[in-house]
Design a protein around this nucleic acid. Structure first.
Length: 771
RNA sequence: GCCGCGGUGGCGGAAUUGGUAGACGCGCAGGACUCAAAAUCCUGUAUGGGCAACCAUGUGAGGGUUCGAUUCCCUCCCGCGGCACCA
């Protein structure tokens, strides 16, 4: 008979809640352990089957740490601002606030049904005014420090969402959210100067324990290049010669003798035209056309190069030759100086361009970088690919940006005591084609007075991106109900940094980078105690549909967690999702696999039901149980949850026919606790033990039992396994050799041959080399 | 194109510093129990040959190092993720 999971899971969840055992304490004798999962976006679709993968894994770690005597903080909350909720609200003519509360209630119920050991008393919600008050306050710190600035510049505009997107939110020229077309538009946007932190975001990666691939991806994204800026004097037709110059950026100053022409970006050409350059009509046309299209679009049109001769001539600073200056859109306005020296001999792109427009290609005697830079009066410099963060959205469901525009004083911060600037309820949530947020229509709200002079002023109507609230939520968990500060200094000092953070790979260059930056800024301002927020970062792979492709609503290949939990139980889901494959890899869902794990749990339950206390260890191999539990314990540390589960299965296969003592069974149940906490407690109670499994100490493993006095090693003849021998791992070669040569199977292969050599690795192998 | 990761039975996947390849689970086959089915239990299950003992082959392909290679090196093929005209 399968055990009644519905009954026992509810029972233990109620007991845990009543006991308050998962509440973290802000201080005390115990060592702290802050364990964090990326808080979910409470979508209307309910929990995705992939969520439990991350949450279960860290739940296992959190529970183990409690057993080990740590004061564990494992919190949960809701990243609830964002487009899907807003779109849903628009479609169903409902308030996003209400929809959010409903979705949160569903998520909360679902997460609780999985038995996670979250500290629910610290639950946060980014859309709660008491939360976003501090998001706004932090934005103002950026503003006051000069790191938040408004800038009119081409932004990525999604035609369907009617919203400006950050570069990170545009994938292959399409909107990351809806897949719709994007175009470039000039829009006044709030920007945050993350590029000022580029170097530190890069350098400090050396001091944190992240999976190497995460570090690599962040390094590539930041994209540091060391090079030099070199000036070229220009002769512009119709202007006094030698008056103008252009600065190019190059990482290969050593190739300067191969530079046969210069190329400027359309953006730079536009600036020159704006300050009075009378450019040929062909140039004007080209520039106008190029700038009307997004950079993405320009790049997407393939490697076919386009460009126009500007008729300007530059003087090569090293050899004095006159070389032409072209404008071409393969040079980016947003990187370096927007101008390059073209070295076709060396650079593939320059070569393609030179060949297409029949520009000269010169051999290049290479010179030392330092000499060149000095000789031509250049300047060594460093450039990054990282761009500043586009921080405003023209949508309703986000944190209002707490600034006011006054004609006299320009942008003025809303005073702290007036925070939060509460998101007003509006008639219509629909975004507008004018590019303004729906808040702009709320004239009563928009029109206000200037905090500085009391004169008439207007509120900023853009809202923040949903990366804002998630950039600091780990700080709020530390002191979730504080209304004097986002968190108290003492508590921050106690809990930070986060000891272990797990999340999705898709956030590596978004949330993970933003929140590192945000924390560093707060650190510089003296508000948080550590420069890096996360000491250790892991990531999990996707749970794919059973056909190996991504689960999606449109394909209808998803799995409903509620259904699985109702039918097979939370413990089965928890343990299966850990067992299904390596934690970091994407793995297809398999219902049969889950059923197999459930079978195992039933076996455990039956074993405990039938268990009769034994005063001796009846296991065939001494120390088998200790070694299994030690392996599981170690596997948790290295995130090898799949082999930890298989070790449980092997262990039960071994003890099924044996007697074990009460102490042994208790150890098993404690180690099982983090994986299948409901069943472990039920069994604990069944064998007459009091209290909760969670209150027990993690077992100590007897070092003597971990070492086997006799093991099986293979005997090879010429590298092929022919037999095995039972021998002490410390046995000397003579003993091993004697045993091996006595083996009939070995003798058979040695017959008539000469032994040339014997390789013996104690505890591993004995190889007889013959000829 | 560049960066990163990977390729192992019918399937998901195991395999210490190079040391018996295929743990564990799924699936499948046979058997027990049952009037029967489900559930459960037992046995088998890389491939080829053999009743079997056993023999040979085998971790994407080819080469190399080594007593010994899934593991290390070289060349190549394929898949996944990221970046993508970043000078």
């Amino acid at each position: 008979m399968p055990y009644n999971h519905q009954e026992i899971e509810k029972k233990w969840q109620d007991r845990w809640e009543a006991s308050g055992i998962f509440h973290a304490h802000d201080g005390g004798e115990k060592q702290k352990f802050y364990c964090l999962i990326e808080f979910p976006y409470p979508s209307g679709a309910g929990l995705h089957i992939g969520h439990p993968r991350s949450y279960t894994a860290l739940d296992v770690v959190a529970r183990k740490r409690r057993h080990q005597g740590y004061n564990v903080l494992y919190p949960i909350g809701w990243d609830a601002f964002g487009l899907p909720t807003e779109n849903y609200a628009i479609k169903h003519k409902r308030k996003p606030q209400e929809v959010t509360l409903e979705n949160v209630a569903t998520f909360r119920r679902q997460l609780q049904s999985l038995g996670f050991s979250f500290d629910w008393s610290r639950e946060v919600n980014t859309t709660d005014p008491s939360y976003y008050k501090w998001t706004q306050w932090m934005f103002l710190q950026f503003f006051k420090a000069g790191l938040a600035y408004k800038s009119k510049q081409p932004i990525n505009w999604c035609l369907s969402c009617k919203i400006g997107l950050a570069n990170e939110e545009v994938v292959n020229g399409k909107c990351e959210r809806c897949g719709g077309e994007t175009e470039k538009r000039d829009k006044e946007q709030w920007m945050i100067a993350i590029t000022k932190y580029a170097e530190r975001l890069l350098e400090d990666l050396d001091g944190v324990d992240y999976l190497e691939k995460i570090k690599t991806q962040q390094r590539n994204w930041i994209g540091k290049s060391e090079g030099a800026e070199i000036d070229f004097v220009l002769n512009v037709p119709g202007q006094e010669s030698g008056k103008q110059k252009v600065t190019v950026f190059t990482t290969r100053a050593d190739t300067i003798f191969g530079a046969t022409f210069l190329v400027i970006s359309p953006e730079v050409a536009k600036q020159w035209i704006d300050v009075g350059w009378v450019a040929p009509a062909s140039v004007r046309e080209y520039v106008q056309e190029a700038l009307s299209r997004a950079e993405m679009e320009r790049a997407a049109e393939g490697k076919e190069k386009t460009g126009v001769d500007t008729q300007i001539v530059a003087i090569h600073p090293a050899n004095g030759k006159a070389i032409p200056v072209w404008v071409a859109d393969y040079v980016l306005g947003s990187y370096g100086t927007g101008a390059i020296m073209a070295v076709p001999q060396h650079d593939e792109r320059d070569r393609a361009f030179a060949e297409q427009f029949r520009l000269p290609i010169a051999d290049e005697p290479l010179a030392a970088v330092d000499e060149v830079v000095e000789k031509v009066g250049g300047k060594k410099t460093v450039k990054y690919k990282l761009r500043d963060w586009v921080f405003s959205r023209q949508r309703y469901w986000g944190e209002p940006i707490p600034l006011v525009w006054c004609e006299k004083h320009q942008w003025v911060a809303v005073p702290d005591e007036q925070l939060p600037v509460v998101l007003p309820e509006v008639e219509k949530y629909e975004p507008t084609d004018t590019g303004e947020s729906p808040l702009a229509a709320m004239t009563d709200w928009v029109n206000t007075t200037c905090p500085t002079c009391g004169g008439p002023a207007r509120r900023e109507t853009d809202t923040m991106p949903n990366w804002a609230g998630s950039s600091w939520y780990f700080l709020r968990y530390i002191d979730a109900h504080n209304d004097q500060a986002f968190a108290s200094r003492d508590k921050l000092k106690y809990w930070m940094p986060v000891d272990l953070y797990n999340g999705g790979n898709e956030h590596t260059t978004l949330h993970l980078l933003y929140s590192r930056f945000w924390n560093k800024f707060l650190f510089d301002q003296g508000h948080v105690p550590t420069s890096e927020p996360y000491a250790r970062r892991h990531s999990h792979g996707l749970v794919l549909a059973s056909d190996g492709i991504k689960m999606s609503k449109s394909k209808g290949n998803g799995v409903d967690p509620d259904e699985i939990i109702t039918q097979y139980g939370a413990d089965a889901l928890r343990m299966y999702i850990l067992f299904m494959g390596p934690f970091e890899e994407p793995v297809p869902w398999s219902l049969n696999g889950l059923i197999g794990v459930r079978r195992f749990l039933d076996k455990v339950e039956r074993y405990v039901q039938a268990w009769v206390p034994s005063d001796h260890d009846g296991l065939s191999g001494a120390g088998l149980l200790e070694r299994s539990l030690k392996k599981i314990s170690d596997d948790i540390e290295s995130f090898k949850f799949n082999t930890a589960v298989s070790a449980f299965m092997s262990l039960f296969n071994a003890i099924a026919v044996s007697h074990i003592t009460r102490e042994q069974l208790k150890k098993i149940l404690v180690v099982l606790g983090p994986f299948a906490p409901h069943l472990a407690n039920e069994c604990w109670e069944k064998i007459g033990e009091g209290g909760l499994v969670e209150e027990q100490a993690w077992p100590e493993f007897d070092a003597r039992l971990l070492v086997q006095d006799e093991i099986e090693i293979a005997v090879q003849v010429n590298g092929k396994a022919r037999a095995t021998i039972q021998i002490s791992p410390n046995a000397d070669e003579a003993a091993a050799k004697q045993l091996a040569l006595a083996q009939e199977k070995v003798q058979k292969h040695l017959e008539g041959r000469e032994i040339v050599q014997i390789i013996y690795v104690p505890g591993r192998i004995l190889n007889i080399v013959i000829k």
